[in-house]
Design a protein around this nucleic acid. Sequence first.
DNA 1: GTATATTTTAAATGCTTGTTTAAATTTATC
DNA 2: GATAAATTTAAACAAGCATTTAAAATATAC
Lengths: 203, 203
Amino acid sequence: MKCVSEKSEDKIREAAKRVFLKKGFDGTTSRDIAKEADMNIALTNYYFRSKEKLFLEIFKDVLEEYFQNMLAILNKDIDIKAKISELIDHDFEMMKREPDLIIFIMNEIHKSPQRLFPDMSIFRQVRETYLKKQLEEGVANGTLRPMQLENILPLIKCGVEFIFMGREIHKELFQMSDAEFANYAQEQKEHIKAMVCNYLVIG
Amino acid sequence: MKCVSEKSEDKIREAAKRVFLKKGFDGTTSRDIAKEADMNIALTNYYFRSKEKLFLEIFKDVLEEYFQNMLAILNKDIDIKAKISELIDHDFEMMKREPDLIIFIMNEIHKSPQRLFPDMSIFRQVRETYLKKQLEEGVANGTLRPMQLENILPLIKCGVEFIFMGREIHKELFQMSDAEFANYAQEQKEHIKAMVCNYLVIG
DNA sequence: GTATATTTTAAATGCTTGTTTAAATTTATC
DNA sequence: GATAAATTTAAACAAGCATTTAAAATATAC
């Protein structure tokens, strides 16, 4: 019994994630989700009480998916250049795996931030990583340009995430096919790595 | 008569732009727009035939607003470093003036690209600016790193636009007030200028 | 100032929305 | 294998949606 019920619950959860990521909260109907999960419409409310509750649950998961692995890299005891490279590679792989993830997160938070920041202990964890210590030491001994975490982190993330968020604009603007975009993104990723490292690390 | 009718039409257009930018197409109802314009609900369809048509008209304007001034700067006959600086300053001012603009454009295009690319002659214009020539010359004579327009342009835009798109995340993540964010954005803007110029211009 | 065209209105249209109901079906318990 | 619980179903709910209607109000033209 429990086994079967979890199956249905998970089917809905996974379907909902797919639809929400593609269409956003406002663009998604309960019937969309039921159809994607191939289940009766009443089941979404049977298992999750409301569209809102289902969404909040999924959004929490998605935000953790976004931050969790990144956190591990931020805390690695490796050279800062290697760390930047790994962070960018990780971001890139995530964007390839879930191309709708970043625009979804950005847009939903933009539309109703207060609703989507409940505890967010993950934010504190991001603020207090080993990278922060590395930065402070590097700045102190003059090997790194004077920057703080809030300066360098967005520079690491924005390059890759921006071109994936604006994937369709970039394809249209620069007349690229899907295959061409894939190559372009790869190429751009290496530029970003070099650019950020060159800027942060002095000499 | 015409004077009065244009007044109402424009009132609706301006109200619709405000609401669409804030809530997106899916999150906006015809009643939202009528209320924001302080007009009867039937007037939105009287003047624009449908919510869809009104949206498409506004989206076209918004996209032109985004590209138009940028285009003028791209074609300026000035040093490439000065041009990058000016492009970033212009972007920054635009984001300050219309903080919802960039996430709106990105999200709407992401959700339905085919619907929003009708003629888009503006894209061709962006592709064929003086900056392109400058780049090719600089690369040829070895003063610039070998890059093409599609490589450098996103690097110029992503830094500023990313932090404005993710304004609320950044505020939450780095525990900033509105005022602190304003200072931070300004500071970040200068980092981006320096970083991109340093990377592109050799020596 | 009357006749005509334009603009605005309140009300209603039919459809879709999220959610609920209550009965039917499946599963678990003894 | 009968009883109870959990799951699934079809149908309905009221509320909200974009859009239309037809009458009222206003402006324009002569």
